[in-house]
């Protein structure tokens, strides 16, 4: 169930998430008077979030927050509801009940669409366009009009550099490898300088060096651009690289804490062991 990747670069290369101030994570009660732009509250606040798909309850009354300008990892085994939760936050999941506030507005509000970058699990790009043509098109959707044509060129070039594909910029996407494809997909999400980046398993199938580079990129995006990142993964060792974790199992939240606190609380050495410990505890 729980994947472990023996080729992980391990703790030595993990960017230090020590600066994560757990104290900053206050409940919704701590929010200042609401103005959508300046709301200092968490990027995402969920209360009793439930999602039903068909006759199956995929998410069961989740309560959690995602702090701003931090990397929050959403971890859990395949099929536990991670993608559904991410879709609910992005606003593309039907039948979500409860309260879900994203960047100060109810999830799914049309005005949120340009403030959130979303990378689906499958690389959702056009395989019969080059890397740059893909980005040009999505950039034109975000900032339409001839007048913005020159203004669009710079973010496109930067996004390609961010994901280290400059040498492949004019290659057809269909000729790229799987890992390169998912990086193109990620580059599209970086385009609009979104306030919230929602990444569904962005590092699946990538080699260890690339995974490390991507995590370095995630950290630099969070610290230098102040972007909030919500990253899902079923590989537990990626948890160590996050500031904060949401552990999900069978649609229920197992824990919401920093990796350090989780390990300390469960008296374990890794987040994976902590996860197993919590599962045992819950089923006992």
């Amino acid at each position: 169930m729980v994947n472990y990747n023996p080729h992980s670069p391990g703790d030595t290369t993990t960017p230090e998430p020590a600066a994560a101030p757990a104290a900053q994570i206050a409940g919704p009660a701590a929010q200042a008077p609401r103005t959508a732009e300046t709301a200092p509250g968490p990027a995402v606040t969920a209360e009793a979030l439930t999602v039903v798909r068909g006759d199956r309850t995929v998410l069961r009354g989740l309560d959690f927050t995602v702090p701003r300008a931090r990397i929050t990892g959403l971890l859990g085994p395949s099929g536990c509801g991670k993608s559904t939760l991410l879709r609910a936050i992005v606003g593309t999941q039907a039948k979500a009940t409860g309260t879900l506030t994203v960047l100060g507005a109810p999830a799914g509000t049309p005005a949120l669409r340009e403030r959130i970058g979303y990378v689906t699990q499958a690389p959702s790009i056009y395989q019969d366009l080059t890397v740059r043509q893909n980005l040009d098109y999505f950039a034109a959707v975000l900032h339409p009009g001839r007048a913005h044509r020159t203004a669009r060129a710079e973010p496109v070039t930067r996004a390609i550099e961010d994901v280290d594909l400059t040498s492949h910029a004019d290659d057809l996407a269909g000729r790229l490898s799987g890992g390169q494809l998912s990086r193109v997909s990620l580059a599209v999400a970086l385009l609009g300088a979104p306030e919230l980046l929602v990444l569904d398993e962005p590092t699946v199938g990538l080699d260890p060096v690339l995974r490390r580079d991507l995590w370095t990129l995630f950290h630099s995006i969070a610290t230098t651009r102040g972007t909030t990142l919500l990253v899902s993964s079923h590989v537990m060792d990626e948890a160590e690289r996050c500031h904060r974790l949401l552990l999900l199992r069978e649609g229920a939240l197992l824990a919401e804490d920093t990796p350090d606190a989780l390990r300390t609380r469960t008296g374990t050495g890794t987040v994976e062991e902590a996860f197993l410990h919590l599962v045992d505890e819950a089923t006992r």
Binding site: Y118, T120, S124
Partner: peptide, 13 residues
């Protein structure tokens, strides 16, 4: 099926 539709509709299109 490629997911580009989902992505586009999550954008301001």
């Amino acid at each position: 099926t490629s997911g580009t539709l989902e992505r586009l509709l999550a954008m301001p299109l």
